[in-house]
Amino acid sequence: MSGADIAIEAEGLTKSFGGRKVVDNLTMRVERGRIHGFLGPNGSGKSTTIRMLCGLLTPDSGRGACLGYDIRTQQSEIKRKVGYMTQRFSLYADLSIRENLEFVARIYGLARPVEAAREALLRLGLEKRAEQLAGELSGGWKQRLALAACILPQPDLLLLDEPTAGVDPKARRDFWDEIHSLAANGLTVLVSTHYMDEAERCHEIAYIADGRLLAQGTIAEIVSRSGLATYVVTGPDLEALAARLKATKGVDMVAPFGMALHVAGRDAARLSEIEREFGEGAPQQWTRGEPSLEDVFIDLMTHLEARR
């Protein structure tokens, strides 16, 4: 893989605020043209990492490059080529949609800002609301506007910080369709999210917690690398069973999913002993299952907490 195929490369990125390490020795790599999901609980360092990548925060140590530009020394090139969508809506509430887009087009020095803004309006279906003030828009429309502003200068890389937080399911689906069509045209996207269904729409994901990267790769890779054996348990009295299983050595994760209980362990042999021990003669049904991405993440988090 040559350097030109890499959109984001970070090595040992570290950032502290007030003595607390928010991002700790983070190493990651994103290939061009991919949609890379960035997952992790609140306060895990996702936003801080994204801000370091687009030059808004200076790392304490480590190095990184976006589109081949050094994040410490070439911020102005990065700003020109990278679209960053902030977690909180950060366009001008007292400007209309059109005025906001024209402002962005002018700042990026587009040849015909007015036309560029109009094209962006059409592409994202915002033309009917063009004269509406941005501050009066609902969450979904604000997000659309923010995305339109991000892609207006035709960046090569999009950094999206929780773009779908507080957006309804329909708008979320439209948003992801748009992201996929952009990626199909060669754009690289790094998108942070809380939602598992969104993670599954990504080509690759990175999972961080406490500022540390816990897993990275395609979903299949992450699931298989986790080495988890999983059983799906159905039947009565699952809550009592869950409590007993949690206290059992060899069970690394117990989590309820709807009417079922997911039970996972790293030692497959030990887990099948447990299956016999708890399953024989009991009213519940034990079936061997594939671990889901969520199982893996819950397991990762449980381990992290146990180590602390």
């Binding site: 687009c54 030059g55 808004l56 102005s76 700003k79 020109r80 990278v82 960053y84 902030t86 909180r88 809506f89 950060s90 366009l91 001008y92 509430a93 962005v104 700042i107 990026y108 502003a149």
Partner: peptide, 13 residues
């Protein structure tokens, strides 16, 4: 205070 600075700083101005 309005949070618009973050977007402005991410732009090449």
């Amino acid at each position: 205070e309005r949070g618009t600075m973050e977007a402005l700083l991410a732009m090449p101005v």
